[in-house]
Design a protein around this nucleic acid. Structure first.
Length: 576
RNA sequence: CGGGGCGUAGCUCAGCUUGGUAGAGCGCACGGUUCGGGACCGUGAGGCCGGAGGUUCAAAUCCUCUCGCCCCGACCA
């Protein structure tokens, strides 16, 4: 029984100036969330109901997949993080604090350390494996730049699960069960989503997939293909068609002046060669060394791939001063030939087949032309460093790849033994051998999924909730709350709906109809019932769905059935 | 961390250049007229102009410091 006047919901007409994306704007306007500090939000009652719905769906599917719920501490001692090595490596994103005894703690951004510590104390034998533990909990990651409301908050709700097994096969099974559970969850939410291959990054591990809700405002770029291939842009591969090499044998290497032409398009135009025959040289700095990465002139470097190929923790483009010191030239004239020995060279596949190519001369206002690998310089170690672009051929079938954007709402990982080895989480197998457990971890952003649902389901007037995530199923409103007949009819219908187990928000405010209609559209509750006014005088109530706004007047006595029919059309299964 | 911007009523913002009694719209309270798509009229409440220091007869306004927030970039499970 929820009457608007007794509930705590405050809608606004104006959008706060910091809300950029539609889901953030609508969540604030609909009174779902309120910002307390950068990236930190209160979930107001209307928003919390939706979060709770999401959490319930996640619990249902996780339980069905055989995972077991627990709840771990949000505050974690530094020792565990020092043991896994992440106290140093995690960086500023880890919110650290000290207690009164000056002991170090952090607010958990994730729980691999805690769960591994827990399990190693309890589990000894292969006969106690496998299992999968999960929690829904508040995490904190001190993001450099929180934005977009719940989409990229610092404090956020996440479901995280951790599987432990004795064998690779058990890991594969747990991973597959999670994959299926995630599909079931996002389908249950009524979301349009895709699963893509993802980079495993510094977490390591053999396999990883991300679940993306398709949205223009998504922060992640993904490529996909009709054949079923899909990957995060950080991971995406392609088979680039070879560039035709010139028919004539390249002449001897020469240095040519290219005054003021430092960018690839400039140089290409100035020299009259296609960008595909230029080798672009980018200087990076890692925690260990300087790196020159080579890529074909028309393409970009994928820095995630480069970082993986180099095996470094930090990677950044070298500063202008450092580039000038290393190359002895202004920025824009770097090349692989004649760099100091301290600079490590690495090349993308795209430059391997080039002959007679152009590159910077490591001399201001000059480029080298007619270079040939093996003749003028040796080909550096080659790796896949390519940033895939839309239209590139699919690595599986060769058809053009589609580039789109998505919101990462779930991420599943095969961790392997990274943490169990570092933290000695061992078990004894049937032969008496002591082995590290094989782990998987499976994250799902609760609040982010709700935000993504709004991003995907709204119109100019407000939210259009998919029923499973809707804070309420039915909005019942009176046209004239002070009219006795209206109040009586609405009260009765309200009671009838509640008796059927329907979640109703009863807007009984003494407000002008326009205000209540606008609020109803903004809140986006799937089914609306309007009682009062002319229709009630004719013995009718008006029933409609937020999704299509097709209004139908039905006799008061048929109001309940009309609402139930619309709920059924929204996918509600009704008891009895 | 680099660059840019903003802190004035609950919200959105003017006022600052050129120092001189604190403003508008929305929201809120009260009265009246209204009443099926964010009504209208009237009255009213509500501010240490983010904070600290300085200049000045006088500071929202000028100067210094500081805190918070936002945008772009770098970074990122």
């Amino acid at each position: 029984m929820t009457r608007w006047n007794e509930f705590y919901v405050h809608t606004t007409r104006e959008v706060p100036s910091d809300a950029e994306v539609i889901s953030h704007q609508l969540m604030v306007r609909a009174g779902m969330i309120k910002k307390l500090a950068a990236g930190i939000y209160t979930y107001l009652p209307f928003g919390w109901r939706s979060i709770a719905k999401m959490a319930a769906i996640v619990r249902r599917e996780m339980d069905a997949a055989g995972a077991v719920e627990l709840s771990m501490p949000a505050i974690q001692p530094a020792e565990l993080w020092q043991e896994s090595g992440r106290w140093q490596r995690y960086g500023r994103e880890l919110l650290r604090m000290q207690d009164r005894h000056d002991r170090d703690f952090c607010f958990g951004p994730t729980h691999e350390e805690v769960i591994t510590d827990l399990v190693r104390r309890d589990v000894r034998s292969y006969r106690q494996l496998p299992f999968n533990l999960y929690q829904i909990q508040t995490k904190f990651r001190d993001e450099i730049r929180p934005r977009f409301g719940l989409m990229r908050g610092r404090e956020f709700l996440m479901k995280d699960a951790y599987s432990f097994g004795a064998t690779e096969a058990q890991l594969d099974e747990a991973y597959e069960a999670m994959r299926r559970a995630y599909c079931a969850i996002f389908e249950a939410c009524g979301l349009e989503y895709t699963m893509v291959e993802a980079d495993t990054g510094t977490i390591g591990g053999s396999s990883s997939h991300e679940f993306m809700v398709v949205a223009q405002t998504g922060e992640s770029a993904v490529v996909s293909c009709g054949c079923g291939y899909g990957a995060n842009i950080e991971k995406a591969e392609s088979r680039l068609p070879a560039v035709p090499v010139p028919a004539t044998e390249p002449g001897a290497r020469r240095t040519v002046p290219t005054p003021g032409h430092s960018s690839v398009p400039d140089v290409a135009a100035f020299l009259g060669v296609p960008a595909t025959r230029i080798v672009k040289t980018l200087l990076y700095e890692t925690e260990k060394e300087f790196v020159a990465a080579l890529v074909r002139g028309d393409r970009e470097i994928n820095e995630v791939k480069l970082q993986n190929a180099l095996g470094c923790d930090h990677l950044a483009l070298a500063s202008e001063e450092k580039v000038e010191r290393l190359t002895g030239a202004a920025v824009g004239f770097a090349g692989p030939l004649g760099l100091p020995a301290e600079v490590r060279l690495i090349a993308d596949e795209s430059v391997r087949e080039l002959r007679g190519f152009v590159c910077g001369a490591n001399e201001s206002d000059a480029h080298l032309v007619d270079l040939v690998w093996g003749r003028d310089l040796s080909l550096p170690p080659v790796a896949d460093l390519l940033l895939v672009a839309g239209g590139d051929p699919c690595p599986r079938c060769g058809e053009p790849l589609q580039l789109s954007r998505g919101i990462e709402v779930g991420h599943i990982f095969k961790l392997g033994t990274k943490y169990s080895e570092a933290m000695r989480c061992h078990f004894t197998d049937e032969h008496g051998a002591e082995l590290p457990m094989i782990m998987g971890c499976y994250g799902l952003g609760i609040g982010r999924t709700v935000a993504a649902a709004i991003e995907q389901n709204h119109d100019a007037d407000g939210i259009i909730w998919p029923l499973p995530l809707a804070p309420f199923e039915v909005l019942l409103m009176t046209i004239n709350a002070t009219d006795e007949a209206t109040r009586k009819a609405a009260d009765e219908l309200h009671a009838a709906l509640v008796a059927r187990g329907i979640e109703v928000l009863y807007d009984d405010r003494d407000e002008r109809p326009g205000v209540k209609f606008k609020d109803a559209d903004l809140l986006g509750i799937p089914v609306r019932v309007v009682v009062g006014g002319k229709s009630l005088a004719a013995g009718q109530v008006e029933v409609s769905r937020r999704r299509d706004r097709v209004k139908e007047a039905v006799p008061v006595t048929a109001g309940l059935e009309a609402v139930l029919a619309r709920l059924a059309a929204e996918g509600r299964r009704l008891p009895g």
